[in-house]
Write a protein that binds this DNA or RNA. Structure first.
Lengths: 100, 100
DNA sequence: CCAACATTTAGCAATTACGCTAAATGTTTG
DNA sequence: CAAACATTTAGCGTAATTGCTAAATGTTGG
């Protein structure tokens, strides 16, 4: 929720901020390992943190476009979205390409 | 996932935090574009920020291992260090490899 | 409909991040 | 040696982040 007139954070900013927290990287790695989707409760149980703390991490990931979620009954299923991961990887890859 | 034998689990934290700020990504891109090294003053002049603000960004980058510096007369030359960039890229690349 | 369940939202406290200005440090030159 | 230069360090204020607990929301089953 950018304040009115606030500088618009570029797409990469939210992305790298999201990747910066160990818990969030852990979520992404586990999601990937588990085939791409998990319900919120199973994600929360990865951590010693209180559940609402994980909920907020999930929100940061989702705002960055790294995961999406859908309802399934009373559970919520979070799914990896690889597109932003690819974006970050490509940004980094640039440093290893011949300067054209 | 982290490579086995990768540096302390959270070399990644400092790394992604460093990459998260637009000014710091700007510094890295400019360094790369300019062939890998620049003096502090030229880096500072990229920004509307006060110089000490940039000095601190450089410190964050250096603490993350993304740049190093050496003295040269009364100037300081900052140089890109590609190794941590490669580390971050490889971490991301994991998500695009068959889960082995 | 009501209780139990799965999860999020609200709001608080501690910590860290990032901008600034002023002062300090180290280097070169007259 | 002193003045000028290049840059960093110190310290301050504000805003954001991250953890917590308590309360709210939406869903299902009896």
């Amino acid at each position: 929720m950018p304040k009115p007139g606030a500088p618009r954070p570029d797409a990469y900013e939210a992305l790298f901020i999201a990747l910066a927290h160990p818990a969030r990287r852990h979520i992404l790695m586990t999601l990937n390992f588990e085939g791409g989707d998990m319900i919120a409760g199973d994600i929360a149980s990865l951590f010693a943190h209180a559940w609402p703390t994980t909920t907020r991490h999930l929100k940061v990931l989702e705002d960055a476009g790294l995961v999406r979620h859908e309802r399934q009954g009373r559970e919520r299923v979070y799914r990896l979205d690889h597109r932003q991961l690819a974006l970050a990887r490509d940004w980094l890859d640039w440093f290893f390409k011949p300067t054209s």
